[in-house]
Amino acid sequence: MIKRTLITALLILSTYLIAVPLFLPTVQVEQHQLQENKIKAQNFIYNESDTIENVIVGSSLASRILTDSLDHFYNLSFSGLSTFEGLRILLKKEHLPKNIYIETNMILRGEDLEFTSSLFSPYTYYSQAYLPALRTGKEPLALVVETAQEIIKGGSDKKSITEKKTIRDSSQIVLAGNPLFKKVLAGHISNYSNKPDSIRLHKSMEKLKQLVESLKARNVNVVFFEMPVDSSLCGLPLFKVLRETVHQTFPKSKYPYIDQPACGEYITTDGLHLPRLDAIRYTNYFRNKIACHYCS
C-alpha cells in the first residue's frame, strides 16, 4: 500500500514537472508582494536570451515604468525593496546588459539580503533552473485556478506583471482633496522634512559606489534617474540632500542622468507612486530621454 502510494505520488509529480513547462510555460500566479518580486527576479535570472540590453533597477516607484513600450528592456524594480536587490541580482549574472538605469529615490531604504540570498541558494537556484515547474508562481492550486479563470474569460492575459500591478494600482488612486490622501501625504511630508542620518547616508552611498564600480569594471553603462513624486515632497530636505549626495558621488561629468521631471505635472496615488496614466506619461518621458544616451 505504501509502495503504491509512493509510486502514484512520483507519477503525479513527474507529470506535473513535465506538463507545466510544456502547456503552461508563461503562466505565473502572484498571490502577494513577495511572490510578485520573486517571479520578476526569477524570470530575469533564468532568462538566457541576449535580447535584454537594458535593465531598470529600483523600488516600487520605478516598478511603474512600463517596459512593454521600451525596446529590449527589463524592469528589475521591486515593491517594498530598494535599488540594491536588483543590483545584487545583476552582478550574479554571467552576461550583463549593455545599460543599467538606477532609480535614486529610495537608496536610503535598507537592503533585504535574505531576499537575494534565497534566490541563489544552491538547492533553490539549480532545482528551479532545471525544473521550471518549481519556480515561484507555479504552485499547482494557483495554476489550476488561474487556468480555469482564463478559460472562462476566453483567453490568456498577456500583460506583464509590471503592467498588471500598475493597472491594479490605478484603480486605487486617491485624488488630492480626499481625506485619506491628505493623511498619507502628511505622513510623507513629516518623514521627508528632516535631513537623512549622515552615517546611514554615507553607508548607502559607499555600498552603491561599490556596486556601480563593479558594473563599470564589466563594461556596463550606468545611468541614474529620479522618479517624480508629489510636488510637495520634491524639495523637502531628505530628498534634496539625497539628490545632492548622489550627484557628488556620481558627478554628471562622468555619469549620465535622466533628470526628474517637474513633479507638479504628475499625480500620485499616495504621494509617491504613479497611477497607470501617469506611469504611461513618465514612460514616454523616460523613452525620449534615453534616446540621447546609449539606446539607439
Rank of each mutant, 00 (worst) to 15 (best):
Glu265Ile: 02
Pro275Ile: 01
Ile167Val: 04
Met227Thr: 08
Thr268Glu: 10
Gly187Phe: 06
Gly110Leu: 02
Leu90Cys: 05
Ile107Cys: 06
Pro140Met: 03
Lys153Thr: 11
Gln128Leu: 01
Asn288Gln: 15
Leu274Val: 09
Val220Leu: 03
Val223Glu: 02
Glu36Phe: 10
Asn105Tyr: 11
Lys98Gly: 06
Leu272Pro: 03
Ser77Thr: 02
Ile52Asn: 12
Ser77Gly: 10
Leu90Val: 04
Ala133Gln: 07
His95Asp: 08
Phe224Leu: 03
His273Cys: 08
Leu61Met: 13
Thr67Ile: 14
Ile152Pro: 03
Phe225His: 11
Leu242Phe: 01
His247Pro: 00
Val27His: 08
Ser59Asp: 07
Glu114Gly: 00
Leu185Arg: 09
Asn194Tyr: 06
Phe73Glu: 01
Ile2Met: 05
Asp230Thr: 08
Ser127Glu: 07
Leu34His: 12
Arg281Val: 04
Gly155His: 04
Asp50Ile: 02
His202Gln: 13
Ile65Ala: 08
Leu24Pro: 11
Arg64Lys: 14
Ser156Phe: 06
Lys38Phe: 05
Asn194Ser: 11
Gly86Thr: 04
Leu70Tyr: 04
Phe239His: 13
Thr51Glu: 14
Ile161Cys: 02
Val229Cys: 13
Thr51Tyr: 05
Gly235Glu: 07
Thr162Cys: 05
His273Leu: 04
Lys164Ser: 08
Glu111Val: 09
Ile12Glu: 01
Gly271Trp: 10
Gly80Phe: 07
Leu131Asp: 01
Ile89Ala: 09
Cys234Pro: 00
Pro256Asn: 12
Pro256Ala: 06
Ser156Asn: 10
Thr83Ile: 04
Val145His: 05
Val220Pro: 07
Phe23His: 00
Thr5Ser: 10
Cys295Leu: 09
Asp259Arg: 06
Leu108Asn: 13
Thr124Leu: 02
Leu61Asn: 14
His202Asp: 14
Leu180Phe: 12
Leu180Trp: 07
Tyr266Cys: 08
Glu36Gln: 13
Ser156Asp: 09
Phe73Met: 08
